[in-house]
Nucleic acid binder design. Structure first.
Lengths: 196, 196
DNA sequence: CGACTCCTTGACAGCGTTCAACAGTAGTGG
DNA sequence: CCACTACTGTTGAACGCTGTCAAGGAGTCG
């Protein structure tokens, strides 16, 4: 187990986190725009962001892209119930993550740990709630409403005093909201001219 | 799994489900277009469809509606991790459901049942997967693609030999796909003229 | 039969996309 | 230090897909 972890290890000290007390987490760094894991790839690790930002997405054969969620420092992603990841994950900027072998954290889970299972449940329930809200946004809101909702979400999650800097570019925002980059840009101009 | 085991001891079929073996389920009937539970309402029961169909949805203050999922005979819905339902559920047609008090089924769950927790986890994971696929559909597919995908999904789930009858009307389909009823109707015409 | 609901179809408008030009910034190398 | 390039974001103009508005057909029910 440890040898597999050290394959990704940077040689830095290992970390312990509240979830899965017996777990050893190691730190790893992904540079901007690199893939962390791919859709349908075996889910061997779970990840927690230390710094940076990550997007998870699905692709259509012709290149159309839908971003499912953004993950920011503190967020955990890559947790699955089945064997495979359901979305691709990519670093939006240079990103440091803590990663741990899934069997190590939830190993007991697949056997008999109630605690591990409930942690997974909590994380999936949170993802599901986010996805369901996002369905309403994608299906039934206008471009300006979408961008406004996005800004509100980011404002809340980046818990910023006054101003904040978005780690993702226009293309990411567009693919998150089901718009084009031009529409995002226009919506931002409109919101700005209305005072925001 | 979630198979229904039917016994014909009394003439009427009696249902037992693998999930929560010690549970008592009672049958209940909802007539067409009535609410089964509301968004934010306390989640006291979980439901399994015997016959009929159910939609779950979110509403915007101005009446815009997004349907999150359709549930068909055999499907379980209303399962939550937290205390409250995150979407409203309504009967699409006259619908018979089996319902069971949540504490009864997952009572052990909130205390120490690994089995109950893992069943909830499995159901939520399935919902999440469906929602994530639906995000891609809502955000990045054209009206004809949406309707085609809807038909394929229903064809699969209604497991019908040859033809099948949709329990939901055009408005439900439209609110599921993020379209208007007219667009759904047009897309159906186009698909039909292309042979389907 | 009339009233109602649901669905389809047509005409047109509008929102968001597409295509295009341009500004701002950063990186590179002369 | 400045040209050159590459990339990102903004803005404009025209197009087109989907929404809106309207009419009419098909089916149901009293």
């Amino acid at each position: 187990m440890l040898d597999i972890i050290s394959r990704h290890s940077t040689g830095r000290p290992e970390y312990r986190v509240a979830i899965g007390e017996s777990a050893f987490w190691s730190e790893f760094k992904y540079i901007k725009d690199t893939e962390i894991f791919a859709e349908n790839e075996t889910a061997d690790y779970i990840y927690q962001i230390v710094s940076g930002a990550v997007r998870t997405l699905k692709l259509l054969p012709d290149g159309r892209r839908q971003i499912g969620a953004f993950y920011l420092p503190g967020d955990i992603f890559g947790v699955e119930n089945g064997d495979a990841h359901r979305l691709t994950a990519e670093a939006i900027v240079d990103t440091k993550v803590l990663l741990a072998k899934r069997t190590r954290i939830f190993g007991e889970f697949s056997k008999e740990s109630l605690r591990g299972t409930r942690e997974v449940l909590k994380l999936l329930a949170r993802s599901l709630q986010h996805a369901e809200n996002h369905l309403l946004l994608l299906g039934r809101q206008t471009s300006v409403e979408k961008v406004a909702a996005f800004l509100i979400e980011m404002d809340r999650r980046l818990q910023s005093p006054g101003a904040f800097i978005l780690p993702m570019n226009r293309r990411d925002i567009a693919d998150y909201l089901g718009l084009t980059i031009e529409s995002v840009s226009r919506a931002l101009s409109i919101l700005q001219s209305e005072g925001l």
